[in-house]
Amino acid sequence: MKHKIFIDGQVGTTGLQLRQRLEHHPNIELMLISEELRKDETERKRLMNRADVVFLCLPDAAAKEAVTLVENPEVCIIDASTAHRTNPLWTYGFPELSPRLKEEIAKSKRIANPGCHATGFIAAVYPLVKLGIVSPDYPFSAHSITGYSGGGKGMIQEYEAADRSIAYESPRQYALSQAHKHLPEMQYITGLSAPPVFSPIVCDFYRGMETCVPLQSRLFSKKITKAELTLLIEDFYKESSFIKIAHEESGFLPSNLMADSNGLILYIEGNDEQITITSVFDNLGKGASGAAVQNMNIVLGLDETESLI
């Protein structure tokens, strides 16, 4: 018998990506809602409570409201919004961070899917804190380059408009007030005493992301070389199906290198004094819908790589 899956918000960017990934999944049956009823609360509630897994691809307030519609205690909700990522009653859906967390995801009925920029930052920083290489009060900063699909339908239309402004041809830094919505989970999940200084940048390509974290080894909690750091992080992720460590110098590192995949590559570069760790992945893959499918596979007891590349 196939597992029943419902996507609430199936016409948004993440919802559409999820549908495309799940249409050919051999173990699931997609429960689709008709266009004229997709905002009908009664029909949404009916489908949600019949599902094994419900994906929420909605704005934060709508996601919180949607949770209240699920009365069946057997239904697992995977929320792709920001609404529950720092809620201790929800499980953070980043299984690579520890075997214990992966076990929690497998048993959980409430899973918060990570944000895209947060995925890149946490993949680089979490091992540093967990292994005692840096203290929680290390003064982190990061910049993160994303394709314009990360801004959803509105931004996609702006970038693909025939009469768009010349400004869209240039990289554009945003969230300059240091209030980006991913900052709380970056701090909360890594256990930092303060959020990083964060510079997100949107560029004129559709999908792909790279998040770069610069490091000064003189501020580390223990003396360690770049080569030793690389081996430690590689060992940290040795059981991961999707996170890998690059061993070659990148030269020029394209942000769309991992587009159309659920993989994430960490590039650890520089020298023994100044090091950068750069996460390269797909903002719509490991940064959104791919991670959601990975979490669903774990919840359903399937191979976590099923229908993912």
Rank of each mutant, 00 (worst) to 15 (best):
I189K: 07
V134S: 08
Y138Q: 11
P184N: 06
E160V: 01
I156N: 04
L229I: 10
F121C: 09
P114W: 09
T225S: 15
G290I: 03
P59I: 14
I201E: 04
P59C: 14
E269H: 04
I189S: 09
Y237A: 07
R44F: 06
S221D: 12
Y159L: 05
M186Q: 13
A259D: 01
K107D: 13
S289G: 12
M296Q: 04
I265D: 00
T91C: 12
F220A: 02
S170H: 12
T14E: 11
E71F: 00
T119D: 04
V67A: 06
G115L: 13
C212A: 15
L22E: 09
A194R: 15
I7Q: 10
G150A: 12
L22K: 08
H143V: 00
S141C: 08
A80K: 00
T42G: 03
G290E: 03
S261E: 02
D282S: 05
G251K: 04
S170M: 11
L37G: 00
K102N: 10
S34L: 05
G270S: 07
F236P: 01
N113D: 12
E210C: 10
V75M: 07
P254Q: 11
A62M: 09
L128F: 01
K226A: 03
V54C: 12
S307A: 15
E96W: 10
A161E: 04
M1H: 12
H180D: 14
K4C: 06
I156A: 02
P136N: 11
A63D: 08
K223M: 03
E41S: 05
G191R: 02
G270V: 01
E239V: 05
S170F: 09
Q294H: 13
D204T: 08
E306V: 12
D303V: 10
A175R: 13
K64A: 14
A66N: 02
E234H: 09
P171A: 02
V134C: 13
N271R: 06
A175C: 10
K109N: 15
N113F: 10
K223W: 00
L16Q: 12
S240M: 09
C203L: 05
A161V: 03
F205A: 06
D163G: 04
G151L: 02
Y159P: 09
G15H: 13
P59G: 13
Y148C: 04
A80D: 04
E43S: 09
A292G: 06
L18D: 11
P139G: 04
Q157N: 09
I77W: 03
P139I: 03
L37T: 05
Y126G: 02
D163V: 00
K153V: 15
A112H: 01
